[in-house]
Each structure stands twice: as C-alpha cells, then as structure tokens.
Design a binder for these strands. Structure first.
Lengths: 110, 110
DNA sequence: CTGATCTACAACCATTTGGTTGTAGATTAC
DNA sequence: GTAATCTACAACCAAATGGTTGTAGATCAG
C-alpha cells in the first residue's frame, strides 16, 4: 500500500518537525499522557514562548493536536502522523529490497 | 530492540536531511542505481552547486555515501540509515501502543 | 597539448529558524 | 474584585538554510 494523501510539502513539515530533539521529546511526552503547554514548558531550559513555537511546529505537521480546556491548551500526540512518516520510510526500504531482488535475478541468469 | 547508537544530533541530521523533497528524490534515485553528482543534477531545475549541497546534507546524515571513480563521484544510498530512521518511529509507535494497553488495563480493573 | 567535463569550494544573498522579551486577553483562585 | 496563571502574538535578533555565481583543480577525449 502506497503512502498517499501526503503532499511533498506535508512530508517536509513532518520530517522537519521531527528534526529537533526538543520537539521529539515533546512528542514522546504527549504520547505518554496529556499535557498543557505550560506543563510541557516546565521541562525545558527555554522560555514558554519557545516551547509554544515548538508545539506550533508539531501542530502544523499534524504530529500533535491542541484542545482548549479552561485556560489551558491540552497537547495530544497524533500517532497517525507518526505512522505515516514510518510508512514513507517503509516505502524506501521496499524500493531497496526490490533493487536487491532485481540484481539477484540478473545474477541468477548466468 | 532499542534504536541506540544514534545521538540526538545525528537524529536531527537524519530527519533534517529527509525534510526536503529534492533530497528525498535524490535518495530514491540513489537507491535504484548508482549516479554521479552531475547525473543527479541533470534532473533538477537548480544549479549543479545546489544539488552538490543537497548531496552533502544527505552525506552528513549518512543517508548516502560518495565514492570517487575517475573524475566522478558516485552517490549510493545507505539503506541502513533509512532503517534507523524507521526504527525510531517504530519506537514512538510502540510507546503509543503501551499507553493504549495501559489504559485498557486500568479500564479492565472496574 | 587542448578542450570539455566533473567536482570542490568560496562568496554572496534572501528567507527561515530558533531563540528572546514584552504586552495583552482569558480563566481560575482567593 | 484582585491577583495569579495560562495562552497568544508581535517585535526583534543571531544563526542556519537553500539558492546563486564564479573560480580553480582533476580527469578524460581527441
């Protein structure tokens, strides 16, 4: 099955969002349980606004969603986005395996 | 098995390298067969130097290797790096599944 | 030898990124 | 009502990114 319904620029956003250790850490926390933005920010040696921006990057990539609850914004990870990124890499590995098979076939012809 | 032996900054390089459609396209071409840098550059609407830089980004991330052959540099994809990126995302999915199981257990206690 | 090809690398530029501080609007607690 | 908390967002800044052109060194072809 092909990883469709993701445009090039969406994939760009997805991998870009994952290319930062603070953001990956936020995703892991948000997978484990719900957190408000300020609860997340408490864990990092940077300003609240900086963490807010990181969450916004993750949100643009659909790796997390935000939901307002009272005065807080609850951040939740979206495992579907993670799955799509993984499937993309699966595709690349599949292409590689096809190449290996193809070369094996050519060698077998001798 | 845990995806170890990859530091945070190496993972940064890996996902950053994948966060550009030109670079992903180069990786796919290089998986399929060997290409010189100029052969790769012929496919893109940008300068040779720009493609050279993209290849350098992929090389820093270990997604491709370069080997000098005569006056050419042969670019080859490194499927191991792709596998490691996928394994990282597998870890995240595993954490998610553990959470789902844990919540199911809590609910089952009632 | 000469010219064409392939690469490396520097210098430059516009835009994006990742951080900061500051201000202001909602919501909650007392 | 007042104070504290949580968030949003603007303005600013240094550094990185993604592109360009230009120059120069190797290697190959004739």
């Amino acid at each position: 099955m092909v990883v469709d319904q993701l445009s090039d620029s969406e994939v760009d956003l997805l991998f870009h969002a994952l290319a930062d250790s603070t953001r990956r850490s936020i995703v892991v926390r948000a997978i484990g349980e719900e957190h408000s933005v300020s609860a997340l920010a408490a864990h990092y040696a940077m300003s609240f606004a900086a963490v807010q921006k990181h969450v916004a990057v993750l949100e643009r990539a659909a790796l997390v969603t935000k939901e307002k609850r009272g005065r807080e914004q609850i951040v939740r990870a979206n495992p579907e986005a993670i799955r799509r990124a993984r499937q993309l890499l699966d595709e690349y590995e599949k292409i590689w395996r096809q190449r290996v098979d193809r070369i094996a076939d050519i060698l077998a012809e001798d």
